[in-house]
Design a protein around this nucleic acid. Structure first.
Length: 561
RNA sequence: UGGGGCGUCGUCAAGCGGUAAGACACAGGAUUUUGGUUCCUGCAUUCGGAGGUUCGAAUCCUCCCGCCCCAGCCA
């Protein structure tokens, strides 16, 4: 089932919006925005915000803008802008013609700053970075007024214009709001509004050498776009008084309102941009879209569906509690989607040859297999059966434990969609002792039913024809970290999971999979859900990524005994 | 330490003075040509703690405890 683009369940933000609507605020409009800084790829945490903001717009028949919050040229680039656009589209959301850039507001923001100066609410400060820090005071001690705090409006106007004109070196001056150096909230101690930074901007080039700070640019960008509810994460709660201070002075009506919610934390991974960049730059992963990454592009390449991510975001809810969501919930959401929608196929990951002695040599039978056991409308496919097949190595045990219901000496099993076979003998490599092939016999009457004498055959295993199957590469992914909360560790790289990727080169897939298109997903029966790799799948030569294994109650039983 | 925020099941999360939703996880059982799916069943006498108000408190009051955020010319 496709998941709705917005969740219908309520939360404290929807309660606030309902109240605002009831009170007749903003002419009944709801306008949100998703404001990423294009200095990295977006991840599942951003997806939570995307679903929230766009979901709200859909639910209240409002709008949600996409705005690049590009006020600090360091690290920002068009590559990131493009990835963000691609990822949000893929998630299923649409901002129509409302793609905006804070950098497009630079001139307007500059004029707002001039207005503030004229009113005596901002001044040019010539303290250097160290001095500013010293003057700021500490949590327990109030700050001191800058000696430049009382410059005349005229001087401030002149200096600010010259800052813009590039007359001063980086760091020589800043524009500061004149608020209160003794404010208990440090954010309000004459916050910096503009800094001089000679850094080419990926959009404005060398036009500007002064750039507005987040606190100044963000609230005004919201106002310029007529945003009604500016939703951000909890760490900005301290900044809300400043948001309001600026907006109250510069915006007359329909002032946007900031609301904060708790950012997502996911178990067994990291979500901070700094740490993700480190994983990429130090090559612990193959890139931003490595299937082990919690980035949207990584999840896409891994095989996650947009529906499953939306469903996940709806399931975790929105609140203000710090949280660490169990990655099992994310996995549950893809399984739910893929169980419903992914066609089934057979693929043997670690092949063991089986020769069916009583099956005629050279005979090939086309067996009809359902593409989905519960959805006949998904059709059937033909799978060839012959004398030599491959089964999974772990589906045979010479000396099986209790409750093992697969193949073993003296036992029989059902080949999925095919016959019941019985073990006859095995061949071992003399040197290594490794089992190289099995000999079995099949019961011809069991294609569509139980053995003639009605005896029960418990186990069912998957298989492929030795002759007709195709070789494929399969990549088995596991969690990137060995501990549930690596983000809490200073030295988080110590906890990287050395087994997060296992590459299997000799898998055998039914031939129908040979031409799998990139990003198509299947359930390999009895194994899990797999997705043809977006980049490495070539025509006739697919590479499959394991999205997530099937739930495995046998593994639990086997682990106990 | 000053300020801000948050504490309800292992993990999320409803609850807004009328007697603890739901989801994931976990544990049983049924059905099954995927040890999958599906279906039943169980899973907080209790809401960080202690007092108080009330016929009645997770919800109101008081005090205490714990965790998170803020001292970038990052966002």
């Amino acid at each position: 089932m496709a998941q709705p683009l917005s969740s219908t369940s309520s939360d404290f933000i929807r309660d606030i919006i309902d109240e605002d609507l009831r009170a007749g605020k903003n002419d009944g409009r709801v306008a949100t925005r998703f404001p990423p800084e294009p200095n990295g790829y977006i991840h599942i945490g951003h997806a939570k915000s995307v679903c929230l903001n766009f979901g709200l717009a859909l639910q209240y028949q409002g709008t949600c803008n996409l705005r690049m919050d590009d006020t600090d040229p360091v690290g920002e680039s068009m590559e990131y802008v493009e990835s963000i656009i691609r990822d949000i589209r893929w998630l299923g959301f649409d901002w129509q013609d409302r793609l905006f850039y804070a950098s497009d507001y630079f001139e307007k923001l500059y004029q707002f700053a001039v207005l503030l100066i004229k009113r005596g609410d901002a001044y040019v400060c010539s303290l250097n970075a160290d001095e500013i820090r010293e003057y700021r005071g500490t949590f327990t001690q109030p700050g001191k007024n800058s000696p430049y705090r009382n410059r005349s409006v005229q001087d401030n106007l002149d200096l600010f214009a010259r800052m813009r004109a590039g007359e001063f070196p980086d760091g020589a001056h800043t524009l500061r709001a004149k608020i209160d150096m003794a404010a208990p909230n440090i954010v309000m101690r004459d916050p910096i509004l503009y800094r001089i930074k000679r850094e080419p901007h990926y959009r404005t080039g060398n036009k500007w050498v002064i750039y507005p700070m987040y606190d100044f640019a963000h609230c005004l960008s919201d106002a310029l776009e007529n945003i009604t509810h500016s939703i951000c994460t909890l760490e900005f709660e301290n900044n809300r008084p400043l948001y309001d201070w600026i907006v109250e002075r510069l915006i007359e009506k329909n002032r946007p309102r900031q609301i904060e919610f708790a950012r997502l934390n996911l178990s067994y991974t990291v979500l901070s941009k700094r740490r993700l960049i480190e994983l990429v730059e130090k090559k612990y992963v193959a890139g931003w879209d490595d299937p082990r990454m919690p980035t949207v592009s990584g999840l896409r390449r891994r095989g996650y569906t947009p529906e499953s991510i939306r469903q996940f975001c709806a399931a975790i809810g929105v609140a203000k509690n710090d949280n660490l969501i169990d990655v099992a919930l994310l996995e549950h959401c893809v399984r739910e989607d893929l169980n419903e929608n992914a066609p089934r196929a057979m693929c043997v990951l670690r092949p063991l040859k089986v020769i069916i002695d009583n099956y005629p040599e050279g005979k090939v039978q086309q067996l009809t297999c359902a593409n989905h056991p519960q959805r006949p409308e998904m059709g059937t496919r033909q799978v060839p059966f012959c004398r030599e097949i491959y089964i999974e190595r772990e589906d045979f045990m010479e000396d099986p434990p209790k409750k093992y219901n697969r193949l073993a000496p003296g036992r029989e099993v059902r080949l999925r969609n095919a016959y019941v076979i019985k073990f006859e003998s095995m061949v071992k490599d003399e040197k290594s002792g490794e089992i190289t092939e099995l000999h079995c016999t099949y019961a011809p009457e069991t294609l569509d039913g139980p053995p003639a004498d009605g005896r029960k055959v418990q186990g069912v295993i998957h298989w492929v024809s030795a002759e007709h199957s195709v070789p494929v590469e399969v990549r088995l992914y596991d969690r990137l970290f060995t501990i549930s909360d690596p983000g809490a560790e200073e030295d988080f790289l110590k906890f990287l999971n050395p087994a997060s990727l296992e590459i299997l080169q000799n898998c055998r897939a039914e031939k129908n999979l040979a031409d799998a298109r990139p990003l198509t997903r299947y359930q390999f029966e009895r194994q899990g859900y797999f997705c043809a790799d977006e980049k490495d799948t070539k025509p006739g030569k697919p590479v499959f990524n394991r999205v997530v294994p099937l739930r495995d109650s046998w593994a639990k039983i086997a682990a106990v005994s």
